[in-house]
Design a protein around this nucleic acid. Structure first.
Length: 500
RNA sequence: GGGGCGUUAGCUCAGAGGUAGAGCAUUCGGCUUUUAACCGACUGGUCGUAGGUUCGAUCCCUACACGCCCCA
């Protein structure tokens, strides 16, 4: 650190740096030899029923450590609160119980420092479990002051950019990420119990596929080649179905080079799973079971409240086809003309939806569905029978090849999952890829590229399979009542901060 | 990409065309059961950046940066 930046440093940091320098002169300022014998919450749980007399009788010696979040000095005695991963525990420091000079040192310590305390448990006259310390040590000096204790850290930008401060100050925020972890753990247990194999497939690909989206590109220096960050793991996972694993899943990041919003982050987490000898209705059943079990396990209830709306995840969810949704929210439309391109173009014009020449009736249906239906699908709903035109990897419906055996799952107007019976006819798949390539040539940057190896894999024979992708971030938003995807990402994408 | 709102002390926030305030934190003093501890004293700011208007701008105008929300 240069003299200049030292001078530029705020007074508060400079004061603490002075204290750190004094510590350095007295020995190792960053020790790593303290070991606790309990966390705050373990103590709160274990001694929940003990009154002060019982605690003193049992003479419970404890060693705790954590960030000092509260410091109340009252002359020759003080109370502090130490925060660890489990919660907080109070300690009482008395000058005359501590070794000579320690209490004077302690008075120089700051809120935010990492502090260790050893002593016996008692309960204060207001009933708070407290460590009466006979030893106390400064474990790590904090050079930067924490936000104000009462209001905490409120500034959105700082909460996202300096998530570590947010996690220190806002228990609610930390709880969101514990819930996130619980959700992912529940999914793994749920799938492992059904003999699914968890796998990892490449994030850097030479041909991006498996979804309709624009990819990020990168460059491999040694091989001097263009690579894409995957937009979905789908095609690789289905290669593994060809390989015989029969039940596979991956929970990991995909990347889409699109806008950033409360619903979209450039990198996001999906569960994708594939199951041989199953169809999309088996997956609909699985989603119901998963949502039911997950809400029970994570929330302890089958009702979830999201942004003031209450949803019951304990029952079977209604199913509607895409065309039924369109007619439901546009009752003036004529059901018999829903596949008539000219008619649909007129509907799009009426809603201000831009139409391109290469849009067929299926694409037009989806545009109308997204514009008029999606937001209104509040209660958990399965929407089925997506047009073949917009479902290049899905198996056509046997009775009505205009649509596929596909569904999406909506809650609160948001797509949570997308699943279908997989297209395993290599010749049909090649034809669909050619159609995608054509619209790509026509200027649609989101259209899929022709993946020759994927066709080759299908030519070896992929068993009839159903697959699904579930957006983990959106699921976590739902279960934690978070309005923005940034609230459920530890480090959401931000424009770079300017350091001057 | 378009629109709206925001950016003031470490944090949470007031404020007004005449060079800036509170609470908490910091610093100093007091206090051996506190709970946003309390009591007393003090300290702390190129008011996001750059231009413009004005006798004078942190306030009005313009552009830019960053953030939040809505729309595409």
């Amino acid at each position: 650190m240069t003299e200049e930046t030292k001078q530029d440093e705020g007074k508060l940091i400079a004061e603490r740096r002075g204290k750190l320098n004094a510590l350095r002169e007295r020995g190792n300022a960053y020790p790593n030899d303290f070991r606790r014998n309990a966390t705050a919450d373990e103590l709160q749980q274990t001694f929940h029923e003990h009154d002060d007399a019982t605690l003193r009788e049992e003479d419970v010696h404890v060693a705790v450590v954590g960030r000092m979040m509260v410091k109340r000095v009252m002359g020759k005695a003080s109370f502090i609160k130490l925060q660890d991963r489990s919660g907080q525990i109070q300690a009482r420091l008395e000058r005359d119980r501590l070794a000579e000079g320690v209490y004077q040192d302690f008075k120089k310590w700051d809120v935010g420092d990492i502090v260790a305390a050893e002593g016996v448990l008692f309960r204060t006259k207001t009933g708070e479990l407290t460590v009466l310390a006979d030893r106390v040590r400064l474990i790590t000096k904090s050079l930067r002051p924490l936000p104000e204790k009462f209001h905490g850290l409120a500034d959105q930008e700082t909460r996202y950019r300096q998530r570590y401060v947010d996690l220190i100050m806002n228990a609610d925020s930390a709880a969101v990420f514990r819930t996130r972890s619980a959700i992912v753990a529940y999914i793994r247990a749920f799938l492992d119990a059904q003999d699914y194999l968890e796998v990892e497939t490449p994030m850097m690909q030479t041909t991006p596929g498996g979804a309709i989206a624009r990819p990020f590109t990168t460059h491999h220096n040694a091989l001097d080649m263009l690579l894409y960050l995957r937009i979905a793991p789908e095609l690789n996972l289905k290669r593994l179905i060809v390989g015989g694993f029969e039940r596979v899943y991956e929970i990991n990041r995909s990347f889409r080079n699109e806008g950033v919003s409360t619903q979209h982050n450039p990198e996001f987490t999906m569960l994708e799973l594939y199951r041989a000898y199953a169809d999309y209705e088996d997956l609909i059943d699985m989603v119901e079971a998963l949502m039911h079990g997950m809400s029970d396990a994570v929330l302890g209830s089958t009702t979830v409240t999201y942004q003031g709306e209450e949803f019951d995840l304990g029952t079977a969810f209604p199913r509607m086809t895409v065309e039924e949704v369109i007619l439901h929210f546009n009752p003036d439309l004529e059901a018999s003309k829903l596949r008539d391109r000219d008619y649909l173009v007129g509907v799009c014009d009426a809603h201000g939806i831009p139409v391109r020449d290469n849009y067929g009736p299926g694409k037009l249906q989806i545009e109308i569905f997204e514009k008029t239906g999606e937001d209104n699908l509040r209660k958990p709903t399965f929407v089925t029978q997506y047009p073949t035109e917009v479902s290049p990897l899905s198996r056509c419906n046997d009775a009505d090849p205009f649509v596929t055996d596909r569904f999406e799952f909506f809650i609160a107007g948001r797509e949570i999952a997308n699943g279908f019976s997989e297209l395993n006819d290599p010749e049909d798949q090649a034809e669909r890829f050619r159609a995608q390539a054509a619209s790509r040539d026509a200027g649609d940057e989101e259209a899929m590229a022709f993946d020759h190896d994927y066709i080759r894999a299908l030519e070896y024979g992929m068993p009839p399979t159903a697959g699904i992708g579930i957006g983990i971030d959106r699921l976590v938003m739902l279960f934690t009542d978070s309005p923005s995807i940034r609230d459920v990402l530890l480090f959401p994408h931000m424009r770079p901060e300017v350091f001057d």
